[in-house]
Design a protein around this nucleic acid. Structure first.
Length: 330
DNA sequence: AGTGGCTCCTGGCGGC
DNA sequence: TGCCGCCAGGAGCCAC
């Protein structure tokens, strides 16, 4: 499940080999991947050289330059003998390609065709192919002019980058204020913080020792400070381990990440907590599987509406405290 | 406006 | 053995 650390891992890997390559053509084999036509996608991307790679939340951005003149510059058009890029009213300037991997999307270099056709591929020069594989077909591709980027993300209400200057403790406290939604739902809301998904939300809440069903607005100043640090530390650990390969994540070189090996709570239901030995429990918040240690993440301090029903079957945490247990604020 | 629930999508798995 | 139904979840959409 690609979240910020997985997308960042893909970006870093592509950064070592994609810039400078010429994108000859985009070939789309599965039209669930894009609302744009192949002609439109190629109009923005074909005949252009990759100039950079960026990330915004869980979105991967590939910058390309303007359409290159053929050697000799006689009639213009893309290099490599392709016809002139036709799309977008003859637009020939620099563009941005945006890829979202969603659940099972993978970008992998494959010089030869694989077992099944990719949802889309980029035919590159010198000769190589970047395949987009995606079992569940949730992944998406867009292409547009750089000027349209702000609108693209603005219309989605993307929140601040966790590692950007806007994501401060003060911002987090303001964003949490008066919200009745559970902390877990808050962390998954891309309008509040960009890039956190199910795995890192559970792990960050464990690190912050906050119960996932706590109402976001009930979080005190010191708890907000802990949560802010926990989000950053958890995401950074994910990046350092080159992502989590829980289901299908591999980077463009086919390598798996290793963060799944050090998970504290995610998908560890029934196993002992690494800090206190208490059995990790699972509940469902916002339709998502949610894992937590009932002892390290105590159920107190104002729970979200409906949490009593959801936790009705679950025994209360023991009274004994683990060695490094720290009392929550308020 | 904020919140929760539904939907898409397919491979894997448990149950019968 | 084979079939059925459920589960996983990011994000868009809709209802309240």
């Amino acid at each position: 499940m690609p979240e910020l650390p997985e997308v960042e891992t893909v970006r870093r890997r592509l950064l070592t080999c994609l810039p400078g390559l010429l994108l000859r053509e985009v070939v789309v084999n599965d039209w669930t991947v894009s609302v744009q036509t192949e002609q439109e996608l190629n109009g923005y991307l074909a005949g252009r050289r990759v100039t950079g790679l960026r990330r915004r939340g869980k979105y991967l951005l590939v910058d390309v330059g303007a359409v290159e003149e053929q050697a000799g510059g006689a009639s213009g058009g893309p290099a490599g003998g392709l016809p002139p890029a036709p799309g977008a009213a003859g637009y020939a300037g620099p563009s941005v390609a945006v890829v979202h991997l969603r659940m099972t999307g993978q970008l992998v270099f494959r010089p030869e065709p694989g077992e099944r056709p990719p949802r889309f591929l980029w035919d590159l020069e010198p000769a190589t192919r970047l395949h987009f594989q995606d079992v569940r077909r949730f992944g998406r591709l867009w292409a547009f002019e750089p000027a349209a980027e702000d609108e693209f993300f603005g219309s989605r209400g993307m929140g601040p980058e966790p590692f950007g200057p806007e994501f401060t403790v003060a911002y987090l406290r303001g964003a949490l204020r008066d919200r009745r939604a559970p902390l877990k739902s808050f962390l998954l809301d891309q309008r509040r913080i960009a890039g956190v998904g199910n795995i890192y939300a559970d792990e960050a809440l464990f690190r912050a020792r906050l119960h996932p069903l706590r109402a976001a607005g009930s979080v005190g100043p010191r708890e907000a400070q802990r949560l802010h640090a926990a989000v950053l530390e958890t995401l950074q650990a994910g990046i350092d381990h080159e992502g989590s390969s829980i289901e299908s994540f591999i980077d463009p070189a086919g390598q798996r990440g290793s963060f799944q090996e050090i998970l504290s709570v995610y998908q560890r239901t029934g196993e002992p907590c690494r800090l206190c030995g208490t059995t990790i429990e699972r509940t469902v918040v916002g339709g998502r599987g949610t894992h937590y240690c009932p002892r390290c993440q105590p159920r107190r301090g104002g729970m979200a509406p409906g949490s009593r029903r959801r936790l009705g079957e679950i025994a209360p945490p023991r009274s004994a405290k683990p060695a490094d247990w720290e009392a929550p604020d308020r």
